[in-house]
Design a protein around this nucleic acid. Structure first.
Lengths: 148, 148
DNA sequence: AAAGATTGATGCATCAATCTTC
DNA sequence: GAAGATTGATGCATCAATCTTT
């Protein structure tokens, strides 16, 4: 199977896509970290604990909801635990529960607003307002996100 | 300054965007690594050396063209040098030149086709074909990539 | 001292290997 | 031994500190 090199307009679209995805993520995560002391990963863990689990979840479902390997979550929880944002406890069977702490709830509450503002400023406000345009974009993003 | 939490449709768009940008990058970089032994960063360095510099460039302009800190490039070149993909040499003034090796050229040549195919499969082919749609997307991506 | 680049320390992501409890 | 989770090793990104040549 022969594969022609990317034509200039193809290369252009690829570079634009790459720069846009890096820029949006970097801007949102930078604001969250600078203004709230939470990385995007920290924010993801804390908000899922609260939104999906009323403050605590088992290890594996939490990892799944983040799209993370269980080992990645394990390392990350160890670091967040030292900062007293979450805690770990053993369940009745062999399972582990991750729970948000009071300090974690406070940080998350402060971060929600900053996150919402950053997402609007750097992404949502720049998307065309028409319902047809938005629907097209939703469809494209859904296609692009299909797992390998 | 009021900041309402993200509404369900806003949150939905944010999550779709996030998953799409992560998925496209991961798929392209994974294919490049699995089939050619080059990371996205490696490919970026090699292709810029050839396309922008006929095989060699000074350190700082190369870093700039990648959007990297100079220290990041320095570390990366050290690792690529051990794999004999590039070499470093001192210039007449205090400057450093990074040059692609013969082995680097060979790997890059093999990788170009794989990269082109992956970008088409995972991004370009999923974008609507109409010129108006494409133009709209280009505009959106350009807005999103504006530096902080 | 200024320009140009490297180094070292720290935190994070991934993989394979290991531990623990049923 | 199987399910559930942690650990250790390695490579990468970022920041501050340092080195080197003019």
């Amino acid at each position: 199977m022969k594969t022609a090199p990317l034509a200039p307009d193809e290369l252009d679209m690829w570079h634009r896509w790459k720069r846009a995805s890096e820029a949006v993520m970097a801007k949102v995560e930078h604001e969250l970290l600078a203004r709230c002391g939470l990385s995007g990963a920290d924010f993801g863990v804390l908000s899922r604990l609260v939104d999906l689990g009323r403050g605590e979840m088992r290890h594996q479902p939490l990892a799944d909801s983040l799209g993370w390997e269980k080992s990645r979550l394990s390392h990350h929880v160890s670091r967040m635990r030292e900062r007293e944002l979450v805690d770990r406890r053993a369940g009745a069977r062999a399972e582990v529960w991750i729970a948000i702490t009071a300090a974690g709830r406070a940080q998350l509450a402060a971060a929600r607003g900053v996150h919402a503002a950053a997402v609007r400023q750097h992404l949502l406000d720049k998307i065309p307002a028409g319902e047809r345009d938005r629907q097209r974009l939703r469809t494209l993003l859904t296609e692009l996100a299909v797992p390998a």
